[in-house]
Design a protein around this nucleic acid. Sequence first.
RNA 1: GGCGCUAUCGUCUAGGGGUUAGGACGUGAGAUUCUCAAUCUUAAAACACGGGUUCGAUUCCCGUUAGCGCUACCA
Length: 491
Amino acid sequence: MLEETLLQAKTPRVRFAPSPTGYLHVGGARTALFNWLFARHTGGTLILRIEDTDFERSSDEMVEGILEGMRWLGLNWDEGPFYQSKRLDLYKATAEKILASGNAYPCFCTKEELEQRRNKAAEDGRSLMYDRRCRRIPREEAERRMAAGEAAALRFAVPEDGSTSFDDAVFGRVEFANAEIEDFVLLRSDGIPTYHLSVVADDIDMRLTHIIRGADHISNTPKQVLQYRALGAELPVFAHVPLILGPDKTRLSKRHGATSVMAYKQMGIVPEAFRNFLSLLGWTPGGIKDANGKDRELFSSEELIQLFTLDGISKSNAVFDNDKLAWFNAEYIRALPVEELSRSIQPYFDEAGLNASAEKLLAVTPLIRERIKTLREAVAAADFFFVEELAPYDPADLIPQKGDAALALRILRHTRELLATCEFDHAVLEQALREAATTLGVKTGPMFQPIRVAVCGRKNAPPLFESMAILGREVCVARIQRAEESLSSLG
RNA sequence: GGCGCUAUCGUCUAGGGGUUAGGACGUGAGAUUCUCAAUCUUAAAACACGGGUUCGAUUCCCGUUAGCGCUACCA
């Protein structure tokens, strides 16, 4: 029994705590992923908490967007979502506890006053930190003013000297001089808690053991450590994760293009591929070799879970590389069973307004699966299978490299006549057309090009004979005939 | 500006006091081929700089530089 409780006390509890002021972005998704991997690896609990105490900027729509992103990535959580906007009582009580411990004081300075002073300090080149003036107001006076209805924020009284430090699981010991830490606001004058208070109150209340979050929070951490102490609470393990950068090495943001996770779904990224790629941004299992003795990059979710530990997290920021993501995606696409791939690309055809039946698409899928890096690209790669009328193309494309229009015409006419009786099986077609090449005295390259362009409407296309077999006699003959016409009109 | 963090090929990274500094993406060349892909082979490509410590530093320490982060009654 005792053993069991001890064991339970050690079961990790982690959280992903996004602020619904935007969609789930790449950085947030990676943080969520790491928390998820850690929880699953340790058999711990993942809590989802929505940090919506900034009423101005938070919205339900954004919450839904974040949940959608989590679901798409397959990151399931065990508790929540909890909304901070519904837990205001806890924060108020926590603030009172800190006040009672003598580590906080009311501040009567208005936002405007503070801003003015900050501007002036900036001009004079002085420290921008709050000057702590309200800290010196005698308690009786402060109480009198509050009783009189004067608006007051609650600030934490940071020790004047000494330092505050913590041991980060990624960065090691990090220390800040207390003199550098501002008397930060816990409760705004309207009674709404700030981030500083609500994170700590919740992290304690939710009995979190590990805080895995972006490295942009390192500077906030001493403020939180101070509160843990004031509240007599045990410190969790902090693990700060390096940031994800854009190609220009500044923090990834909208001007780098897609940062919303759902935009990657739109682009036709496979969630498993995205997860694999993201997991290796800022984390490494440490030189796991594949069968050829090379470092592995492709890991299933199960392997990722098994391999994930905090000490594999790197300290330096990582640039988001779209090309590498595309490679991962192509790998996953190729590994997908045809039936599944076929189902996955169907929506993109529907969206494009192409009438792609499931059976035909299933037949087409193997022809394009090695030619696409995203699911969406399937449409561009295979649209000619599903259109009535081929998109206009340059008739000059029908003419082989070292040939002329007359040759192209001869090839097309011969092919069309042959197709009238030929069995529409790709092997039979191939044999017949190869023989035709011999008859016409042309090499296979120049022989097949006019046919390919006539049938597919472009120079680069999936394998010709398989494509023709799917298209069928009627369509092929008609398209070749059309090609002949456009060729003769060319002169 | 102040404080904090970081620094291996263009990018993601492995490695670690003595190595030909390894892999992956991307790039170049070649092979294959009905085009394009895929695949295979191959090439170029890195320890930021300066001091220490040491017989020996890319690795450990200190500086410099650069980059990033924080610097709100945002989160």
